[in-house]
Design a protein around this nucleic acid. Structure first.
Lengths: 126, 126
DNA sequence: GCGTCAAACCGAACATCACCGATTTATTCA
DNA sequence: TGAATAAATCGGTGATGTTCGGTTTGACGC
């Protein structure tokens, strides 16, 4: 299990600790499961874009159709559509089709918590 | 204030609503302040990388020096260093220098909330 | 069927990010 | 002072993300 550690790193640990093998094992225990990180990464990637953040903020008060979101973002139709696709793929928004229009809404309100916490983290100048 | 809207979009709104000007104004009110979005974007960008997520998860239980994080990530020194730089720039981690070693710790525990919520959002298969 | 329109998809140019070897900067200790 | 070492920085290359005109799809009314 500790075989993949580069030799240089192992040497470093040898210098740092009396019992490097034990320390190595406890460091490996700090690594979360791959599935967990994958899921978190999917979320944060989906949120790491200004247009997509603005879309989600606009949907706080309720659903909007794609054409209305074009107004909010002030961006070309194809650009808005591709961002909506990404948000939908990530499960952050859900859609409802009504005639020619597609209405978008927040998929899970926990996303709004993410937006709020991220805002609070940068907002206060402590 | 509504001057920057493309003509095609304005035409769409004309078809959709009886009172397009009023609707235009209310749509603009859905747009959050630039500073808010900038801050949120900084956060999510910093979190949108597998290595950086793993670093933060590893720091849950307390501080670690850069060389220990190299073990956790199993990545080259320069790679780890650049990710630590980004996390520090975003304010997500703080540093403490002791001799040759630089110890990293979580800057604000609210970050852990972000990680937890993101995990929960993808974890449950409702 | 046919024209119209909202939305989705495609593809190519462009921008940004990630990786990592090599080098430099600090710090310790002899 | 000089050797050793942890960490930061630099620079070039490849990977990934974004943009947006053009096209296609699907729904509506005539």
């Amino acid at each position: 299990m500790t075989d993949s550690v580069p030799e240089s790193t192992r040497q470093t640990l040898d210098r740092l600790y009396e019992n490097p093998e034990t320390r190595l094992t406890s460091l490996f225990e700090l690594a979360p499961a791959d599935e967990q990180v994958d899921g978190q990464l999917t979320m944060f990637k989906a949120l790491a874009n200004e247009h997509r953040i603005r879309i989600l903020e606009a949907l706080r008060d309720g659903e909007l159709c794609a054409c209305e979101l074009q107004v909010v973002l002030d961006a070309p139709q194809s650009t808005v559509a591709s961002h909506l696709r990404e948000l939908k793929d990530a499960g952050l928004v859900k859609t409802r089709r009504q005639g020619k229009w597609t209405y978008y809404r927040i998929g899970d309100t926990a996303v709004l918590q993410l937006l709020d916490i991220a805002d609070a983290l940068t907002g206060d100048t402590v």
